[in-house]
Design a protein around this nucleic acid. Structure first.
Lengths: 193, 193
DNA sequence: ATAACTTCTTATCAAATGATAATTGGATTC
DNA sequence: GAATCCAATTATCATTTGATAAGAAGTTAT
């Protein structure tokens, strides 16, 4: 495996609070670093899935297919990012959304059972888990409020703050569904500023 | 405490999978059944909070105050309902939203630490916890998609399915913010059907 | 290099939603 | 019962957003 990516994983673990070499080695024991090409689907909606994902490089999005067969993006993951944890994206062992690479990506995968065990036995992992959860939910709430009381322009502004530069990397129609407008309206919003 | 409510709590515990009398007694040991009048606030945004709540009777809503000082409702709890669990509404020990009674309510309160302990030692509590979490997140996802790809009319329809009759019980302006429209638009949507 | 395809933009028109203000209706208070 | 207050409706107009279609620009395939 690419040495540069090993280093990137090392840095990512640090960034998320797994700083002791003991904690890192525990991760390396069961985690694998994988490469996926652009457009690869890591798992589908309703498919069984038993992994946790740490995105080391590239961009992912989560999406669902609505009644009309259209894909709706409900989240992006960019740079160093923890994908929404297993317990909060799984019902009856099956994923409630699909996860797809929007660029070539490098992602560390670790079985959720292993990570649960680590969280139980190792304080750094406990803190790590707590941090991931809190980030996840406070981010969700901000979006909830933005959709209920903000305009599409405001949501785009928010998106740009949270994911600077992403607009130049991923297809716009994904961003459009993410902020809850058509791709035509999205283009209009871009022109206005 | 009112006998009728004790019975209602008993039924609520059953409904959520705490069926053995052993499981129920464990709950009664540390849980208390409390009455709040309409408009009472159980906890505020940013306030420390260490309880889990099981709504036995009445209606609650969770809300946040946006930049303009307007209150935005991001969820309702009616009838027998588990309030969004502590770990997913708390950052740094402080609540990320406020919880308010919209009718007189009866609610069972139990320290989150106790419930965590029960979940660890008792299989019924483990299943209970799992069920609560899965219900919470799949409901959230449905709303995410409704806001991104549906109209306000569709979200009202969804609200009516999930909370039948609630429209006749709680102030409309709360429902309006919940489905993401002004109260004037809400009134319009009502007239149309 | 050309053709085919996809994404993004632009134009036009219709529909949905917001802002504001006036009005109605039902509670509550005095 | 009159006055007051609050929630909900209605009317009017402006703005935002959607639907559709056509065109532009870039990419991919042959």
């Amino acid at each position: 495996m690419d040495n540069r990516l090993k280093l990137a994983l090392h840095d990512a673990l640090n960034a998320f609070g797994l700083q002791s070499s003991e904690a890192k080695n525990l991760f390396y024991e069961s985690g694998v670093l994988r490469i996926y090409p652009r457009n690869a689907v890591l798992f589908y909606e309703n498919a069984p899935n038993e992994l946790e994902y740490l995105l080391v490089e590239g961009v992912l999005h989560r999406y669902n297919t609505d009644q009309d067969g259209k894909d709706i993006t409900t989240g992006f993951y960019a740079g160093n990012a923890i994908v929404t944890p297993h317990f909060s994206r799984t019902v009856g062992g099956r994923s409630i959304f699909a996860l797809q690479a929007l660029t070539d990506i490098a992602v560390a995968e670790i079985p959720v059972k292993v990570l649960d065990q680590l969280r139980y036995t190792h304080p750094e992992y406990r803190t790590f888990g707590q941090r991931v959860i809190e980030a996840e939910f406070s981010r969700n709430l901000i979006n909830d409020i933005a959709f209920r009381s903000g305009t599409a322009a405001y949501r785009l502004e928010l998106f740009r703050k949270i994911f600077p530069g992403l607009e130049n990397i991923v297809p716009h129609y994904h961003i459009a569904t993410y902020i809850g407008v058509t791709n035509v309206s999205f283009s209009r919003l871009r022109r206005k500023k």
